[in-house]
Amino acid sequence: MTRKPAIEDVALQLFASEGFEGASLGRIADAVGIRKPSIYAHFRSKEDLFLCVFKRTLRRKQYMLLRHILQDTARPFEQTLRELIERLMDDHESDAETRFLLRMCYFPPSALHDQVMALVNPFFAQAELGLIRLLEQPVHSERLRPEGAQEAALAYLTVLDGVMAEAIYTTRAKAARRLEAIWPVYCRGVLIAE
């Protein structure tokens, strides 16, 4: 049985809690129950391990986001999008993958900045396109202001960024307070007044 998944799982936990610099290969190996040189049977370096974990986590989170958005496309999009922010705030507190991903999107290791951003930027570009496609569906687009789906999607990502930055830097309670304040403004800004 390969230890590669176990190494990745432990590395994820340590990268999420201590960052790239704080998570040593020695501590990862000890937590897995192997010797440090055994890690090199699966990964060329700490940087290689980090990037493998980052790619895996990005794929999983992308799948989760897509599944959330597509679970019920007939309900009001603003409900789906708000619930997504709330879920991400909850996940930031309880899920190492979300903590890791958010931490590394905001604070990538300086030595891996370009490689991380080369993965993150397409991820956010795809997220924006997915949101635009959702908002372009007739059931949603007829409720949007003339500026339409593209503006609503970009504004949503800006709201999401602000709320999640608050969750990362402070607490979930403060992030929730920020969401409560901005959400009605977002909805008034993108929806046609009824």
Rank of each mutant, 00 (worst) to 15 (best):
Y106K: 01
P146S: 08
L135H: 05
R133E: 15
M104Q: 09
F107T: 03
A127F: 12
E97G: 02
D161M: 09
P108I: 04
Q137P: 01
G148N: 04
G148T: 13
L131H: 09
L144D: 13
E151I: 14
R99H: 07
P146C: 01
M104R: 00
A127V: 14
A125T: 15
P122A: 00
V139A: 02
L119R: 02
I132H: 06
T158S: 11
R103L: 09
G162Y: 09
G148D: 11
G130F: 06
F123H: 02
S110F: 11
A125M: 11
E128Q: 11
P122D: 08
E142A: 08
M117V: 10
N121F: 12
A118M: 03
H140Q: 10
H113M: 04
A153K: 06
Y156R: 05
L119F: 05
F107N: 03
D161Q: 01
V116M: 00
P108C: 03
R103N: 06
E136K: 05
P138E: 14
G162N: 03
R103T: 14
A153F: 12
A155R: 07
E151C: 00
F124H: 08
P122T: 12
E136D: 14
E128V: 03
A152P: 14
P122L: 02
L129S: 09
Y156D: 04
Q150K: 12
H113L: 02
V159G: 00
T158N: 09
